[in-house]
Simulated assay, not measured.
Amino acid sequence: MIVLRDEKRIYRLGRLAQVLSMAGLAVLVGGLLLIFISDSPSVFLFQLLALVVGYGFSQVGLHYAHRYLRRPRMDQKLDEAVGAVARRDGRLYHYLLPASHVLLLPSGVFVLVAKFQNGRITAEGDTWRQTGLGMRRFFGRENLGNPSREAEAQVAKMKAYIAANAPAAAEAPLWPVIVFTAEKIDSLEIKESRIPAVHASKLSKLLRQQTINLKPLPRAEYDALRAAFDAPAAHLIEETIDVTPAAE
C-alpha cells in the first residue's frame, strides 16, 4: 500500500498547537495575576477578556494537538487499520486533499473520517452522543460533534474536487466511513445511521465487505482519480512510503 502524507503540515500544525496551548496558559495566568498587580477599576473587565482569549487559544491548541501531536496520530492508526484489503493496490492520502484521509482502491474511493474520542459512543440516525467519561470530560477533552455531518461535508468537498480535477471519474463510487482510532473504546452503538462507523480494529473487515463484490473501475477512471489525487503530493512521490500490512 502506498501512503502519502503532508509531513510538513503535520509538523507545522503540531508546533502551532504547542504555541497556542502555551499562549493560552500564559494569558489565563496573566489574567489571574492582574488582581494583584493592578488597582484599576476595570481590572475585572481585563480579567474577563483574558479568560475569553486564553480559553480560545487553549481550545484551538487542543484541537490541533489531538490531530498532530498525540501518539499514535490518527493518520498512523489508519495506516494500520486499512489492513490487507488495501495491501496490493491501495493508495492512502493524509492531509493532502479536501478530505483529511482518503483511500483510493481499484473499486472506488473511501473518505475516512477519523475520530479520536473514546468512552461510550452512540448514534441514532444523525444524533450522536458520547458518555461514560466521568470527570475526564472536564480535562483536555474535545466534543464529539456530529461525525455524520462532518462526513457528509468531506464527501461533498471530494466530489467537487473530483469533478474539477478528474471529470472522467465524476461518477466513481465514493463512500464515507467514520473511524474511531482510540486504542480503547467502551462501546460503539450505531442505529439507523446513513454512514457506517467502526472502531479502527474493524475497518479492514468493513472495507472488505464493501468492496468484495465490486468490479474494478474502468482503467481511464482509475487513472484519472490517481492523477488528481497524486497532484498535490507531487513533491512526495519520489519519497513514497510503501506500507504493507501483514496478512490477516
Results as ranks from 00 to 15, higher is better:
5 R>P: 06
8 K>E: 05
9 R>S: 11
10 I>P: 01
18 Q>K: 14
25 L>K: 02
26 A>M: 10
28 L>R: 11
29 V>N: 03
29 V>C: 00
29 V>Y: 00
33 L>D: 10
35 I>K: 15
35 I>E: 11
36 F>H: 12
39 D>W: 02
42 S>C: 04
43 V>E: 00
44 F>N: 01
45 L>S: 14
45 L>N: 13
46 F>Y: 06
49 L>M: 15
50 A>G: 11
51 L>H: 02
51 L>G: 07
52 V>E: 09
55 Y>H: 13
57 F>D: 03
57 F>N: 03
59 Q>W: 11
63 H>D: 12
69 L>A: 06
74 M>R: 09
75 D>V: 07
76 Q>C: 02
84 A>W: 05
87 R>V: 09
88 R>P: 01
91 R>E: 01
92 L>Y: 08
93 Y>W: 02
94 H>F: 15
94 H>R: 12
98 P>N: 01
102 V>W: 08
102 V>M: 05
102 V>A: 02
103 L>V: 11
105 L>K: 05
106 P>N: 09
109 V>D: 05
111 V>H: 00
111 V>I: 15
117 Q>L: 03
120 R>Q: 13
128 W>F: 15
129 R>D: 01
131 T>A: 09
133 L>P: 02
136 R>W: 07
140 G>C: 09
141 R>K: 13
144 L>S: 01
150 E>A: 08
150 E>V: 07
150 E>Y: 01
154 Q>P: 07
156 A>G: 01
157 K>T: 10
165 N>M: 09
166 A>I: 00
172 A>F: 06
177 V>Q: 04
179 V>C: 05
184 K>H: 15
186 D>L: 10
197 A>S: 08
199 H>Q: 06
203 L>E: 10
205 K>R: 15
206 L>Q: 11
214 L>P: 01
216 P>Q: 10
218 P>M: 03
219 R>K: 14
221 E>S: 05
223 D>G: 01
225 L>E: 05
226 R>K: 15
227 A>F: 03
233 A>K: 04
244 T>K: 09
245 P>A: 00
